[in-house]
Design a protein around this nucleic acid. Sequence first.
DNA 1: CCACATTGTGTACACCGTCCACAAGACCAA
DNA 2: TTGGTCTTGTGGACGGTGTACACAATGTGG
Lengths: 218, 218
Amino acid sequence: MRGATRAATTSPPARSTYRHGDLRHALLDAGIALARDGGPDAVVLREATRRAGVVPNAAYRHFAGRQELLLAVRAAALSALASAMESELAGLRRRRSPGDMARARLRAIGAGYLRFAQAEPGLFRTAFTASDDLPETVNPGTAGNSGLDPFQLLGAALDGMVEAGVLPRARRQRAEYLAWSAVHGLAMLVIDGPLRRLAPAQRHAIGERLLDMVEKGL
Amino acid sequence: MRGATRAATTSPPARSTYRHGDLRHALLDAGIALARDGGPDAVVLREATRRAGVVPNAAYRHFAGRQELLLAVRAAALSALASAMESELAGLRRRRSPGDMARARLRAIGAGYLRFAQAEPGLFRTAFTASDDLPETVNPGTAGNSGLDPFQLLGAALDGMVEAGVLPRARRQRAEYLAWSAVHGLAMLVIDGPLRRLAPAQRHAIGERLLDMVEKGL
DNA sequence: CCACATTGTGTACACCGTCCACAAGACCAA
DNA sequence: TTGGTCTTGTGGACGGTGTACACAATGTGG
């Protein structure tokens, strides 16, 4: 959640010192702000340096190039998504049985995902942008407060369902991919697909229906 | 299916006449070729004109700008996707009952979608690229041979299931969004998500499992 | 045959990512 | 304190992009 909530320091501080002090951080924050409204394509190196009150080339002291800045922004976006999931989990009230609780946790993961996609579409698209040649290793800095990244949070919820006995162990393997597919696909439809202009209430309804499908079909 | 199969005329024909003859078409084909290997970001106006053997500004006689060229490419990609679905449907062998047949049709739609995403990832990503301010109206030229675009093909399959009595009419409404979500999400995971390096066999297996989930959970 | 509409050309601008040489300050040893 | 070296920001440049404007070459209808 580090960068995503930190507002873009809108004023280029017009520093007096030659050194900036924390340029890398400033560039990252600017990049996040750019991604927030405009998605991955909007995170432009020169604009980030402009906002940091620095000449374009200064960025190269802290990032190998635009791609690396984008990667850092991406990590921050994933981290923010993880936090959104965690906060949804935290807001969960207790259920009667452990099985119900485990199921509710899975739904909370999905709901947090959908909520984040709608609240921060720019960051969401940045988090899942398909850079043609991206290192697939999960970079550090993508986790939330719990130390788990979004995928791991989903996995943990599924593990909980197995433990509670509401998901047969035989169906556990790779189940995160099935659940993730459904929720991610709906998120795409909602933020810039045909479901874009659905009323919030209807949007929520179809989200719930999708989670029903996952729960029933997993 | 018009443009997607037409190979990029790799040789800039070095025309002798002042007029090109069919520049709009040539630009579109070049754009499709660019999208095929490189995705939406790779469809670059100047490069398209270069391949057409023409000066950059000539493009503006046929497209309002890069965005409009991209839109045309997108339509061609959607059309190719529709064709992939149709060919999957065509390859279907008859089933015992109308219910089984209707279910098999839905699966074929999904399988065609996944197959296309893997065979033509560049076009696939172009088809579903999130251009920040895209007119959401479904443009013409997105259909396959049947005259239906991908979404309509899916809708038709679901209608068939209702008719055959294997999908309760009460669950029909908006069901395409649920099914589409799941399949689209998996496609994303497969073409540039964590499932990228899965062996083809395993890829197919998880695809089938996802379709199971949809069928069961719808 | 000639005016006119269409379509491709030439030139220009602003913006982008990135490379190179250089300057300004920090920092450490003598 | 002095001086050297490392780090970090600056200045200038190059090739790439999209796009606007004026102009030239060609087709076309009267």
